[in-house]
Design a protein around this nucleic acid. Structure first.
Length: 311
DNA sequence: AAGTAAATAT
DNA sequence: CATATTTACT
């Protein structure tokens, strides 16, 4: 029994190590977890003692007792791509793109693990995708689009941090990823985020359908660097001599961080002769009759939500 | 492997 | 309908 106990502990340690690679080795985690549970069952069976101690971080402990709790011992084959080096596994291939609307119900999250991560960030970082809860058990089906990586503020924070260390948004995805030190984060994911980031940092003008009347411009993007919601003004301040230090407001999206001030389209006084119509992006039949001085033009649709991308 | 555009998912 | 994230392509 003693040995068994030690075995369990060994397994648990193993599991802790694997946990980090939840995304990459879902099956491993599952297997080890199973083993542990099996051992524990046996132990508790042998001994009257209910060794249910530190069960803290085991399988889903959803606060949903009255739920059909059939053991999820059905290893769900999850996509496991990035097998960089000696990729030992190459799961099932997904048959290219499947019909668009056909398969939406059959894919959710991999192995869910509450992951009572040790440090604060660990959770936010490691659990990258897990932004939300994973309900339905995924059913088989070889196809499974990669789980959407959720860029939690934590991740974005790291992203920015890395970006800084590399000075500027010219950093290469790989470099960034390395500095971020986030497990499971792939190059492509970073690349993608970077793309978005760049898109956003670039003068978000033109398309901006801002009516000059719209309250005080919540954020003026002056050659700034995009900063995560609130906070982290510090980061900016630290790194470079923050010339312009006007952190955007609450839902601020952009923040100033001394940078080679690109042409900054300052406030446009009600200049009407300004033909901002830079690109005739396809179908934009909004511009009906201009000469209409009708007041109707005013805020027709309040839906004009100042979009605030969140990371 | 970096950039970028197109495809999808939310 | 707008965005966020993934894929495909170069």
């Amino acid at each position: 029994m003693q040995r068994c106990h030690e075995y369990v502990e060994a397994l648990e340690e193993e599991r802790r190590k694997i946990q980090v690679f939840e995304r990459e080795l879902p099956l491993c985690l599952e297997l080890v977890t199973q083993a542990i549970e099996a051992c524990k069952r046996e132990l508790s069976g042998t001994t009257e003692d209910h060794n249910m101690h530190g069960q803290s971080e085991c399988s889903e402990q959803t606060s949903n007792p009255p739920q059909k709790q059939d053991l999820p011992r059905k290893a769900a084959v999850t996509e496991v791509k990035r097998n960089g080096a000696g990729g030992a596994f190459q799961p099932f291939h997904r048959e290219k793109s499947v019909g668009k609307s056909g398969n939406q119900a059959i894919s959710k999250a991999p192995p869910s693990v509450p992951a009572s991560a040790t440090s604060s960030i660990a959770g936010a970082v490691t659990g990258g995708t897990g932004g939300g809860g994973n309900k339905k058990e995924d059913k088989e089906e070889g196809n499974q689009r990669k789980q959407r990586r959720c860029w939690s503020p934590e991740l974005h924070r790291r992203f920015l941090h890395a970006l800084q260390q590399l000075g500027g948004a010219h950093a290469t995805p790989k470099q960034i990823r390395d500095l971020m030190k986030v497990d499971g984060l792939t190059n492509d994911e970073v690349k993608s985020h970077l793309q978005k980031y760049r898109l956003h940092t670039r003068r978000p003008s033109s398309t901006v359908h801002n009516n000059s009347s719209q309250q005080a411009p919540q954020f003026v993007v002056v050659g700034g660097i995009w900063v995560p919601p609130t906070e982290y003004a510090a980061v900016a301040a630290t790194t470079t001599a923050g010339e312009t230090s006007t952190i955007s407001a609450a839902n601020g999206i952009y923040a100033p961080l001394a940078a080679p001030p690109p042409a900054v389209p300052q406030n446009r006084q009600h200049t009407q002769p300004e033909h901002l119509q830079s690109e005739g992006r396809g179908s934009h039949g909004e511009r009906g009759a201009h000469s209409n001085n009708s007041p109707a033009t005013s805020s027709s649709t309040h839906t004009t939500t100042t979009s605030s991308p969140v990371f």
